[in-house]
Write a protein that binds this DNA or RNA. Structure first.
Length: 564
RNA sequence: UGGCCCGUAGUUCAAUUGGCGGAACGCCUGGUUUUGAUCCAGGAGGUUGCAGGUUCAAGUCCUGCCGGGCCAGCCA
């Protein structure tokens, strides 16, 4: 972590270099202001986390502010539900409240209308009566120039009158639009007379029925930045070719130099084994592949929060990956390693057996129950200790026993001695299978001299396994998770859903826990020793979601053997 | 097909702006360990997309190629 912090201090990505240069050359009088501009039409995901850390981070580093602005220019898809979820997710990612109140592009509708009027007066915009299909056809393509609309030469007076009529609701939806008058033969397609306003007879979640014309994103975005005094308008690579258009608007509207936002573009975040497009995420929810936007398998902020990811880990991850213009896909393992680093420090340890099988200590005094002392967090002595009941009737992980042990399998098998964590050394003397040949019980003897897990004669065991005392155990469920998509790049499939991993969730409904599990609060993450980190669900019953597993050398050995 | 952007280790980023190509994660080996975890030490991994050019010196500057991304919504 130290090396990361050092790295961060001298970190110079191309955007910070630019901001630093602008600040020292006194552009905008040295002021730095950014913004995070989501559209309230869906839930935030990991890609947004990168942008949130960037925008709020730069504002903080350079002594400026970063506003949350909702780009609510399309009443068809947006709703107040998303406003709330977005705000909550941002504050969770940031680990603190946003210091400024949220802003809305819809608050600037009147100003944008006036600017559109100005453009018309300058002869730089016109009302076009062509339908959407015709406009598209006449726009041309990469090799052919576009063709002027027959309505392109309408006079400013006529356009002014028609635009006012559009606003007044005199025309049906789709009958006309307001277009910028730039150049139909421009090599940049975005400059071929883009649409500025369209008619939508829809109620907007904030302006309600005040408007029937709505600005397009292209028309609204740069001007919203200018209104808010944004100095550095940071966005993803796909808006690179729009920058020319945004600058053209600002120039035409004669926005003063010190109020002009300057756009820089960075690569969006991608991960292996998942998708990060709103469209596909929405489909996962609607097709019931997952159980909602906050399903622990979703790469949404709410999904990760439910799964137990610490926001600190996400922030550290974003700091670590930096920003660049190279399209890139990160290994999801890298994020997970940040999660482990964080949780290893903070999570209390508990014992749980998620796939239990009986272990009976045959030489244990009948009816005897004793308590063993366990350390809550070896990385944090202040977390203290707790007492765990122990007897001759235990449950252990089915995985921790093999009748015929594979090479390098160190755990229990007939004749072998292992340590029960915080308990005693036990030696397997036998096992019982049912009529189907399935293991139902393991028989052991214990060595009373090894109380606390140490042998006075100094003999060693190769494995320590976890356990739960049966009579005093708590019962509940544990869900473990695997990748939602099997391949590294599901986007490479014609339909990424063909790559869905059908076994992305496994629920252990007969999981057992040590009694102190009831102290774990909803939403809290604990480490189940030797299993991984698990987050308690908000539900009343005992239910844990696997946050991330521990690094697992045994699993690596098995994987290697398989591929041989 | 036109325009714009991007190519450095398996992955993601560095390289004091033209001066001996490094780090993190992953992988491998060893040590420590009452979690096969953590922690510690070490290792493998590179023709800097390719070919020219400028220069005492090029990952960095120039030219050409190759590969990838984005743009032809009244989505954002």
């Amino acid at each position: 972590m130290t090396s990361d912090k050092q790295h961060q201090q001298k970190k110079t990505d191309f955007i910070r270099d630019l901001v630093r240069a602008d600040q020292s050359s006194k552009r905008h009088s040295g002021r730095v202001q950014t913004r995070f501009p989501p559209e309230p039409n869906g839930y935030l995901h990991l890609g947004h986390a990168k942008s949130i850390c960037l925008n709020f981070g730069i504002a903080e580093e350079f002594g400026g502010i970063c506003n949350l602005r909702f780009d609510d220019t399309n009443p068809v898809t947006e709703s107040v539900e998303f406003v709330h979820s977005i705000q909550r997710d941002i504050e969770w990612i940031l680990g603190k409240q946003i210091s400024t109140r949220p802003l809305f592009a819809s608050d600037y509708f009147e100003q944008m209308f006036e600017w559109a009027v100005l453009l018309i007066e300058k002869g730089k915009a016109y009302v076009d009566d062509q339908d959407a299909e015709t406009i598209s056809e006449l726009r041309g393509n990469f090799t052919e120039v576009g063709v002027d609309s027959p309505f392109r030469k309408r006079t400013p007076e006529e356009n002014l009158k028609l635009f006012q009529m559009m606003r007044d609701g005199d025309f049906p939806e789709g009958s006309c639009v307001l277009r910028a008058k730039i150049a139909m033969d421009h090599e940049n397609m975005n400059m071929r007379d883009p649409v500025l306003y369209r008619i939508r007879n829809e109620s907007h979640f904030r302006t309600e029925n005040d408007w029937v014309i709505y600005p397009t994103y292209d028309w609204a975005h740069g001007q919203s930045d200018a209104i808010e005094n944004v100095t550095h308008s940071l966005c993803t690579l796909e808006f690179e070719s729009h920058r020319l258009l945004y600058d053209w608007f600002i120039e035409q509207l004669e926005i003063p130099l010190d109020k002009r936002p300057y756009q820089s573009e960075f690569a969006r975040l991608n991960f292996t084994h998942t998708v990060l497009s709103k469209r596909l995420l929405k489909r996962l929810v609607e097709d019931c592949v997952v159980e909602g936007w906050d399903d622990p398998r979703m790469p949404t902020i709410s999904g990760l929060r439910r799964r137990g990811y610490p926001s600190e880990a996400i922030r550290n991850f974003c700091d670590h990956i930096g920003i660049a213009k190279t399209n890139s896909t990160h290994e999801i393992e890298l994020l997970e390693s940040f999660v482990r680093t964080e949780l290893n420090q903070s999570a209390q340890r508990r014992m749980a057996v998620i796939d239990p099988v009986k272990l009976t200590i045959t030489n244990w005094p009948t009816g005897k129950l004793e308590y063993r002392t366990a350390i809550n967090n070896p990385e944090d002595k202040s977390a203290g200790t707790r007492e765990i009941p122990f007897s001759g009737n235990l449950l252990i992980e089915r995985e921790d026993f093999m009748e015929d042990p594979l090479p390098k399998f160190f755990r229990l098998s007939p004749g072998r001695e292992v340590r029960l964590r915080y308990g005693y050394f036990v030696t397997c003397t036998g096992f019982i299978n049912d009529e189907n040949g399935d293991l139902v019980e393991i028989l052991c003897t214990y060595d009373p001299e090894t109380s606390g897990g140490k042998a006075p004669d100094g003999r060693k065991v190769k494995a320590t396994i976890h356990w739960v005392e049966e009579a005093n155990s708590q019962r509940g469920s544990v869900a473990t998770y695997a990748r939602l998509f099997s391949s590294e790049k599901p986007d490479a499939f014609d339909d990424p859903f063909d790559d869905l991993n059908k076994e992305s969730r496994e629920v252990f409904e007969t999981a057992t826990f040590e009694p102190s599990i009831s102290d774990v609060e909803n939403g809290e993450v604990v480490q189940f020793e030797r299993l991984g980190y698990f987050c308690r669900d908000e539900s009343k019953e005992i239910l844990f979601h696997q946050t991330v597993g521990l690094r697992d050398e045994w699993a690596n050995i098995q994987k290697r053997n398989k591929s041989k």
